[in-house]
Design a protein around this nucleic acid. Sequence first.
DNA 1: AAATTCTATTTGTACTACAAATATGACAAA
DNA 2: TTTGTCATATTTGTAGTACAAATAGAATTT
Lengths: 234, 234
Amino acid sequence: MINKLSSTTLADQVEKHIIQYIRTNTLVPGDGLPNEMQFMEMYGTSRNVIREALSRLRMLGIVQSRTKRGMVVTEPPLLSSFRKVMDPQLLSIKTIKEMMGMRIVLELGLAEFLFENVSNDDISELEQIVSRQQAIGVNNLSVEDEMLFHSKIYKIAGNDFISQFNEIMHPIFVFVKHNYDDYFKPLSQNLDDNGKMVNHKQLLSFIKLNDKEGYYKATRGHLQPYWEFIYNFK
Amino acid sequence: MINKLSSTTLADQVEKHIIQYIRTNTLVPGDGLPNEMQFMEMYGTSRNVIREALSRLRMLGIVQSRTKRGMVVTEPPLLSSFRKVMDPQLLSIKTIKEMMGMRIVLELGLAEFLFENVSNDDISELEQIVSRQQAIGVNNLSVEDEMLFHSKIYKIAGNDFISQFNEIMHPIFVFVKHNYDDYFKPLSQNLDDNGKMVNHKQLLSFIKLNDKEGYYKATRGHLQPYWEFIYNFK
DNA sequence: AAATTCTATTTGTACTACAAATATGACAAA
DNA sequence: TTTGTCATATTTGTAGTACAAATAGAATTT
């Protein structure tokens, strides 16, 4: 079962075995697990190794431990560990481009849910955001200003996972805009089908008109800089 | 710096500190890190604690360690830990619904990249897949058969991250189809705008006609069971 | 100079010891 | 009998020692 001569460490193997243990025993959140001593006997390793494996599962949120109570299975927050690796310093250009692609895909696909769920109150909020941005001047928007509108769009669509995902990717967008800003000069590239620039005000107008197709195309134009970056950089 | 009286464990704190260390020193893949002994001195904890923290970062793929060489920063595989938590046993219905939503959003948004990248060879492959499925009978398709067509679509779109993401979510789809199969009776619900059923053959026909809008709407119809599940279940 | 061996360093694993928290049962009070 | 308090035992969290295994770099030999 546990192979001490493998290239992988014992902690790696024990981690896999414990995950397997949870699956094969169809344990669900709330169910108990063996304690450290019992795992030691099950896998014939030192407590150190068991603790390293459990430490990882604790970080993932798959298990929790409390003194005397032992370990219990928990529902993991899906994206907490994803957040930890989403660091532009650590990622290759290929991966960063894939994140840009993810952004485009999510925001286009989200239109379906956006138009299903949008309320009058949502539109009022969007109007406020847009009018503040008009006051600042659409060319002077910081990435945070820019983000404000889109975050609200995600929120309206009503899928917490996707909202969170977008929030986690945000540092990547900031990084790219700072380091490759040629692609993100507003007036030059956010063009729609007819070569007209697409700003938040116009996106909002399609929402108000309940024009999903128009919104989709406008969003596609609004995100054109990302597209350019994916296909033209380097 | 390290607080021994906190409710979080020392390993939790050291983990955060080491991640912070990598960020503030702008370390990139290939760069070295202090060894375990040095971290012990830096944070004033036992080697055990340091090793638990490093073990977690190793699992995330942020660092690698080799004897004598010490630790080096590495580019993490973004989704390896995501895969570990993507277990239908562990997830709530809310989260599972959000995954269904993710499926719809990804596949709709992906259309943009699909039509940009699709080649004649791709279309031939899709034709083969579809004809095999016609032979089996569209109502007899297993989830794996069903997946074959869509996986190819993802592959054509050319974003490895999204392909991998979809593959990781697959067990969730299988789980839902098995447990809530009322929503997934093919002939009754995969309807398009006009109330006609949408199968892979028809999706392919839109690709061949280079009709992106048609494909989008057809895909929306094809995924209608997911939509129904999200909004109607429970 | 090249190949080999040796040595020192670093990670991986095992084991012991104790602190801290707390579930459980024993016991006392009403 | 029920309730509240306390003691005990169990389990996780942390520290420390010891040694095995791997290997980078130095020393040695050819």
